[in-house]
């Protein structure tokens, strides 16, 4: 029965048009970024960065590099937005529309219902990140006419990486997997707020606010020493998989930190949901 209930939850989620806003928006943004990268100024910066370091522009200005750029530019803002949009809906929308009362007239326990809903959020997060990864790669390949070699520059993480095609593809796939793992915290936070007595939009806005405030405060010079206490420091952990020598200890630390946050958010949401009264 559990699998049927999860399947039904996914059907509810993926039959809604708004679930696909994120997918559509990412495709649109990918095209916009590719168009902007055509601008001479953008290209010039890229050429300078590579040639000054003794690398060939054409070799590394490739499909997979374009894909990586698109993801780095967009994931924090758009990823956060669409993950919190769907996860903020998952409970609050049902309460708002009245279907939650119909569900809660059934013999299912509230905790089990929440576990199913949270798992649906996990699936959505993986689906969205997979989609972003595949479409970015496709767009990049179409734009540059092939995969090519990967160049990745992430100064905040101290990454200046160059990889051959095979290695690049493997690292890209692995990076997407870790990206899906770390962004789960955004979904779970949206899910937690969704369990409270608030409108779905409020749950989305609250989640985004927490993420933005965390990001802004983390980047203030005064807080450099306590970086590891910020969520966005740990969500950036996926980029560290592109270090020449991958700092697995640091990535593992981030994953454990985020897993603990996920668990905390889930427990808080569940405690609120399981003790709430549901009335028309």
């Amino acid at each position: 029965m559990f699998w049927n209930q999860l399947k039904n939850e996914l059907l509810k989620m993926f039959a809604r048009k708004r679930t696909y806003i994120g997918f559509g928006a990412f495709v649109a943004v990918e095209f916009i970024i590719l168009a902007l990268l055509q601008l001479p100024k953008a290209k010039k910066a890229f050429v300078e960065l590579l040639t000054k370091n003794g690398y060939g522009f054409e070799e590394y200005y490739s499909g997979i590099t374009m894909a990586m750029l698109m993801i780095l530019f967009t994931i924090f803002l758009l990823g956060g937005l669409y993950l919190s949009l769907v996860s903020g809906d998952v409970v609050a929308k049902e309460v708002e529309e009245g279907t939650m009362r119909m569900v809660l007239a059934r013999p299912i326990s509230r905790l089990r219902l929440l576990v199913i809903k949270w798992l649906a959020c996990v699936v959505y997060t993986f689906a969205l990140i997979l989609f972003i990864g595949v479409t970015s790669l496709l767009a990049g390949v179409i734009y540059r006419g092939g995969l090519g070699k990967l160049f990745i520059f992430a100064p905040q993480e101290g990454i200046f990486g160059l990889f051959d095609t095979g290695e690049a593809l493997w690292r890209f796939g692995r990076g997407m997997f870790f990206l899906a793992l770390v962004t789960q915290v955004v979904s779970t936070m949206g899910f937690m707020f969704s369990c409270f007595n608030m409108k779905p939009a409020a749950a989305t806005i609250l989640t985004l606010s927490v993420m933005f405030v965390d990001f802004v405060v983390r980047n203030m010079p005064y807080f450099q020493d306590i970086q590891k206490y910020f969520i966005t420091y740990h969500t950036a952990g996926w980029v560290r998989t592109f270090h020449d020598i991958v700092p697995w200890w640091s990535i593992g630390e981030s994953l454990v930190y985020l897993a603990a946050l996920n668990l905390t958010f889930f427990i808080i949401g569940a405690m609120r949901f399981c003790t709430r009264d549901f009335k028309s």
Binding site: M1, N4, Q5, V103
Partner: peptide, 9 residues
């Protein structure tokens, strides 16, 4: 189907 599978098959 969705509502009733909260009760059973």
């Amino acid at each position: 189907r969705i509502f009733c599978e909260y009760s059973g098959p």
